[in-house]
Structures are given as C-alpha cells and as structure tokens.
Simulated assay, not measured.
Amino acid sequence: MSIWKLVLLELKAIATDKAIAITLFGGVLFYSVLYPLPYLHEVPTRQAIVVVDLDRSGLSRELIRHANASPKLEVVGTVGSIPEAANWIALPREGIQAHGLLVIPEHFSRDVKLGKGATLAIGGDASYFLVYSAIAEGLVDVGMDFATELKWQALTSRGTNPVAAELQLNPLDINSVPAFNLSLGYTPYVVPGLFLLILQQTMLVGIGILGAGQWRNKGYWDQVSPLMLLGGRMLAFMLIYSVFTAYYVGWCYYWYGANLMASATEVGLLLLPFLLATTVVGIAFSALFTKREQPTQVLLLLSMPILFASGFVWPLSLIPEPLVWLSQIFPVTPAIMGMLEMNQMGVSWSQILPSWLHMWGLLVIFTPLAWWGIKYHRDRLVDSKSKQLS
C-alpha cells in the first residue's frame, strides 16, 4: 500500500465517522462563532445604574445629568432608598436590569457649598467583572470630573482667571495609550489564543477517537508498518488542519479584528511545528485508550487547566508550578505565547525562537512514543489473533 492510498483511507475514515467529523468540522466551525460572538462589542458601555438621591437638590440633579452623560453609564431610574436600589439590581424592573448604583447623601448640596465636602457611595454587581469595572470606573470619573468642575466654579467666582483656574486644577494632562490590545477589548486579547487551543483540542480528540476505535479491530491500519501508519495519519490530519488553521488565522482574525502584525511566512513557520507536534502528541495520546469515548472525556477535563496554564489569561506566578510544568508537554502552550508575542507585541523572530524550538522538541520526543504506541497495539492484535487460531 502506498502512502497516498493510506492517506486517502485515513481521510475516508475521518469523514465517515460521525463522532470524528462532528468534532473536527463541526467543532472548529461552531467554536469560531461561539467564543467571539458574546464579545463583539469589545468594551462594555452604557451600563444601567440606579441613583439613590437622598438630597433632592439642584446640585444632585446636576450630578445625575453628569452621570447619564458618561459614555459608560446610563441612569435608568432614581429611587429614595438603598434597599430599593438593591432590589432593582437583584430583579429587573419594567424590563430593565440595573447593574450598579450611585448614592447621593443627604445635605449633599449644603455641605458642598459650605466647603465641608461630601462622600458619594457607589456600588455594582461584581458577578460580571467587565460590567463592574465599567460601572466603577465610570462613576469614579463622574465624581472626580464633577468635583473639578465645582472647584473651577469656586475659583472663577472669586475672580481667578478661567485659564489659570484650569491650570491650577489640572496641572498635568495624562495621555494614556495602551501598548498592546489597543481597543482594550476581549476579542483581540483572548480569542487568538483560544483559537489555537480549539485547534489542538479538536485534533487530539479526533485522533484519539480514531485510534481508540481501531486498536482492537482489524482493518487497513494493521496492513502497513507502524512507521507508515504514523506518517500517513500525520499527513491526513495535517491536510485537514492546514485548512482549519488558515480559516482561523486568516478569515477569523480579519473578521474579528485580531492583531496580525507578523507576515504570513512568519506565522506559517511558527504554526508548522505546532501542527506537526500536535498530531504526534495526539497519536501517542490515542494509544492510551481502547474505548472511543475516553479521549473526549479526558480532554474536556484538561481544557481549562491548559488554557489557564498557558499564561495569557491568568498570571503564571499565581498557578502552581507543577501544573505549569505539566502544561509544557502540550504544543499549544508555546504556540499561544509565540503567536501573541509576535502578533500583538510585535517581537522579532529571534525572541520567539525558544517557543518555536520548544514545539520542535515536542515533535522529536513524541514521535517515537507515537510509533511505540502503534506498534504495541499491533503486537497485541497479532497475539490475540494467534491465540484465537490456536
């Protein structure tokens, strides 16, 4: 049997197996929409808040107008007590769900005019970190801007030149510009790494199901040498996942606005060892199972630890070191860091060389393990046939 005939048989086995086809083709397409879709708006804006106005003065109403003018906030109602505002946050009212509150204390206007100062209380639903962050930041900005405006009015009323008053209140202008992830959004930050994790996990599950379903049965796979089967299976999955990778890194990156600062050649050079190493890891992984459902179960449990241990959604210093070390056996760990550094931080090829060599090293280590796994199951099948004949 030629290698290309073997590859065609592998592709046929993948396409005709419903579990594998759904995992590979359905999973890659489904997750390309599922993960980014909830975050298409990138940054949460116009978050609904309730104001507890205990002062009911002209100055408090002016503060409420300032809050409603903030691009991060929308005042959906004014109530007379904190418990009433808390109930609005807990349960929607008139179809509107509030996520934060602003409390304007009694005698707010009087204390401000007397120069005593006043304390504003803010709160938010911390169940959603991005929403809470937007509310807290928006309310703090409103409070500080309103206080600055009041000070400016006090200075100008005493005869201070308006320009001098502005310089006195704001002696420094801060121009804050993010170095990476310029939109400060979720999609360009997390989605590129998630796409690589999806590619790895679906490939490992697909190879695992294919291998686990074949090891105890006779078929085309036991008619070739272990080395030839290893090469044919690698070629088959490389052909499929070259298309999937081009879809993710090409079309999906463009559609979702993910950064792609590196050239196509550099991206291809980085992802080549990733795909090769993932295929041999998958083949070696498949040798551990003889039941088709087991690879999916195991990898579902490993997905989240691998994601966090990759270091781009949670600081590695806060993750137990044994878990970080264990994650290094998966090609996606160096691949994610290499892709993010190259495409979001604009580092040179020499700086991601350790990640690139890491993946080639995994390929070298797992190739003999994959070959041994195939040979082990072939020998067991031969032995069982011999016993049946005898």
Score class of each variant (00 low, 15 high):
residue 348 S to I: 03
residue 251 W to R: 07
residue 130 L to I: 03
residue 274 F to A: 05
residue 230 L to C: 10
residue 111 D to C: 01
residue 293 E to P: 02
residue 278 T to Q: 03
residue 78 T to H: 10
residue 228 M to D: 10
residue 35 Y to R: 01
residue 167 L to H: 05
residue 247 Y to W: 15
residue 264 A to M: 11
residue 262 A to D: 05
residue 243 V to Q: 09
residue 351 Q to N: 08
residue 381 L to M: 06
residue 224 V to T: 14
residue 128 Y to A: 15
residue 257 G to F: 09
residue 313 V to E: 06
residue 86 A to T: 13
residue 160 T to I: 12
residue 61 R to L: 14
residue 40 L to M: 14
residue 71 P to A: 02
residue 323 L to G: 00
residue 206 G to E: 03
residue 228 M to A: 15
residue 359 M to D: 00
residue 224 V to P: 08
residue 333 T to G: 06
residue 115 G to H: 11
residue 170 N to E: 12
residue 360 W to S: 00
residue 128 Y to P: 05
residue 50 V to P: 08
residue 198 I to T: 12
residue 317 S to A: 15
residue 6 L to A: 14
residue 357 L to Y: 06
residue 342 M to S: 02
residue 268 G to N: 08
residue 66 H to Y: 15
residue 97 Q to E: 00
residue 114 L to N: 12
residue 351 Q to C: 02
residue 133 S to P: 00
residue 120 L to H: 04
residue 336 I to P: 00
residue 295 P to K: 05
residue 198 I to C: 03
residue 324 V to K: 02
residue 87 N to M: 09
residue 239 L to N: 09
residue 375 K to C: 05
residue 111 D to W: 03
residue 295 P to S: 04
residue 64 I to L: 03
residue 146 F to Y: 08
residue 57 S to E: 12
residue 84 E to V: 08
residue 1 M to P: 14
residue 1 M to D: 14
residue 169 L to E: 06
residue 123 G to K: 05
residue 299 L to M: 13
residue 76 V to N: 03
residue 184 L to G: 15
residue 51 V to S: 06
residue 19 A to N: 01
residue 147 A to L: 01
residue 281 V to D: 07
residue 352 I to W: 01
residue 338 G to S: 06
residue 388 Q to L: 07
residue 257 G to V: 00
residue 335 A to W: 06
residue 159 G to L: 07
residue 166 E to P: 06
residue 376 Y to N: 11
residue 356 W to R: 04
residue 96 I to N: 04
residue 221 W to P: 02
residue 321 E to H: 04
residue 96 I to F: 07
residue 33 V to E: 05
residue 243 V to Y: 10
residue 27 G to F: 11
residue 99 H to L: 11
residue 389 L to P: 00
residue 94 E to M: 04
residue 300 L to M: 15
residue 346 G to Y: 06
residue 281 V to C: 12
residue 32 S to R: 12
residue 9 L to T: 06
residue 243 V to T: 11
residue 132 Y to V: 10
residue 312 F to Q: 05
residue 384 S to M: 13
residue 156 T to W: 01
residue 137 E to P: 09
residue 177 V to I: 07
residue 75 V to L: 08
residue 215 W to S: 08
residue 78 T to C: 13
residue 166 E to F: 07
residue 231 G to H: 03
residue 141 D to V: 07
residue 209 I to C: 03
residue 317 S to T: 14
residue 174 I to Q: 12
residue 151 K to Y: 00
